[in-house]
Amino acid sequence: MPIIVQLDVMLARRKVKSKDLAEHVGITEANMSLLKQGKVKGIRFDTLEKICTYLQCQPGDLLAHEVSAEVQAK
């Protein structure tokens, strides 16, 4: 998956528990876990906004794009 979710890094930096973030955002802990692992289909802007507000960060701090070797070679 080219989009890397770095939520766990930001949670560690801010010393915030997944459970607390999930409660604030309004999603289940299971979905939060899936999000951290990058196993979700997508993220709503509303959810992203709430995460950024709670963790006091930017969307770019949470998501990274990994360029594949093939694209880099081009």
């Binding site: 999603i27 979905n31 939060m32 899936l34 999000l35 979700v40 289909k41 997508g42 993220i43 709503r44 959810t47």
Partner: peptide, 10 residues
């Protein structure tokens, strides 16, 4: 099918 797709969005 759409509901299942939607569930995979957080």
């Amino acid at each position: 099918m759409l509901a299942e797709e939607n569930e995979r969005f957080v």
